[in-house]
Design a protein around this nucleic acid. Sequence first.
DNA 1: ATTTTTCTTGACAATATTTGTCAAATATAA
DNA 2: TTATATTTGACAAATATTGTCAAGAAAAAT
Lengths: 102, 102
Amino acid sequence: METVGQIIRAKREDLGLLLRHVASHLDIDQAILSKIERNERKASKENIVKLAEILKLDHEDLYIQFMSDKIAYEIVNEECASKVLKVAEEKVKYLKNNYLKS
Amino acid sequence: METVGQIIRAKREDLGLLLRHVASHLDIDQAILSKIERNERKASKENIVKLAEILKLDHEDLYIQFMSDKIAYEIVNEECASKVLKVAEEKVKYLKNNYLKS
DNA sequence: ATTTTTCTTGACAATATTTGTCAAATATAA
DNA sequence: TTATATTTGACAAATATTGTCAAGAAAAAT
């Protein structure tokens, strides 16, 4: 079970890229990227898009890891975390069927 | 499939309470409560606690509705919404087992 | 073992989002 | 119509997010 930060660091090192190279592609200071990789800060959605590019990761996969990290972090301390996710899933299905039929 | 706003409005009207009465118990302007009930604004966690009190709703149930609304709203526009929730659930289980054993 | 390079840390700043107020407009009900 | 309740939108304050910078620590190269 990897965090989005772990995935990013692993792939960056695989490709032999430096923090400052990747960070400059994202247009942020390397300090932030360092923190993102260690899960001390959350990436922005824009960061994620550019990270997928430069690290040659599948964009959707990375995005899923990013959002699931964010959501898991929001509720992991609650007893009822699993219940919340189940209800959320029902709501998503309902909304998709009833309001978002494109 | 009800939103947290719908639940609150229904129960408030059931109890015959006015926006301004409930809002004053929450220590907010009635304008906000009006918006919360119509899902134009999100409640804060504190709002939810006090709403459960004054509306005699089960605190955990209301909290689950509140959080699931919030999460569903965050991802409903994404293709991969269901996938995100599934991965989030795995992460929550993993974290609870490995880091939060109290 | 010293120097160079990379990464990490923490204080701070800018910006965006959240959470709220207020007063006027609208809707509902007496 | 008048009184009461709700809604709306412009605005303000507080908080959270997203970032910079520079100095310190760690790792790698010479």
